[in-house]
Amino acid sequence: MENAVSCAGLTKRYGSVVALDQLTLDAPTGSIFGLLGPNGAGKSTLIRLLTGQAAPTAGHAQVLGLDVTSAGMALSKRISVLDQAPRYYGWMRGRELLAFVGELFGLRGTALRSRVDEVLALTGLSDAASRRISGYSGGMRQRLGLAQALINRPEVLFLDEPASALDPAGRHEILDIIAGMRGAATVFMSSHILGDVERVCDTVAILDNGRLIVAAPLAQLQERYAQPVYELELQPGQDTQGEQLVAALRSSPWAGDVAVDHGVVHVTARDADAASREILSLVLAQGVALQRFERSRPTLEDIFLRLTDSAAEGRQAS
């Protein structure tokens, strides 16, 4: 199967609020698919629809080739979900919850016990396994959430903000676990932490206001929006030359945004080839002495902000 997750014209309305608007996207099988978007973009709603927790107002979606509105148990046996704010039975111990979930998936006896031990070790919860969940910290709950989501070796794993409650070290570990699933399962994760998505995801979709802004492999996205950014750090005491350089850059047809921040000139190139040919000639022509000159690729954050800003401008204009 080419796509593990597929939706077409998927719409969800709550009264007059459109949480998801005509969404059409595909997540390739075996990919780690990152769903990005600001708060209220519709990321959690999409995961709820894809996992059968809510019904769409219009459109349809398939996971593993099964229609999410009618597949029921046939689908839930093959997937797993980790909610944004996982809440479990506080009276249970960590190990008990995992055994309970494992039993729901049909695991019994030795197979169940060894799988519980495995996911406890994987998520670093072995030492806390005998403690009541009510005593777990937010980070431990999120680890437990990932552990319970892994217990059935899901073919598709839906993760809603899987690392949001974790400290940097914890986030690193959880992202490593997720990255380790590449090829073995499809991971469909939402996040507002762009660095996390950039680190583990190979395919990315950006949602804003319930609409899909873009969906593509991360590398392709970076290539498509690859307007290089040049940073020119001037040596101190060149205010006049600096102003002249900025004016010259702004009048160049290949330059996009030109901004000055603490003595560093940031130039976004509209035409990368022309910029690389001409930028240093301009510097020489103005007689500016540079302390540092750097060309960088746009980060996912640059692309995200650019796309969501232009989507917002488009909405205002209409």
């Binding site: 927790q53 148990m73 839930s76 997937i79 996982p86 809440r87 979930v101 729901l104 998936f105």
Partner: peptide, 14 residues
Amino acid sequence: EQGTASFVLTKPVS
């Protein structure tokens, strides 16, 4: 209210 129902019902439980 606590969200445990939606957690359990994403598993193979009718």
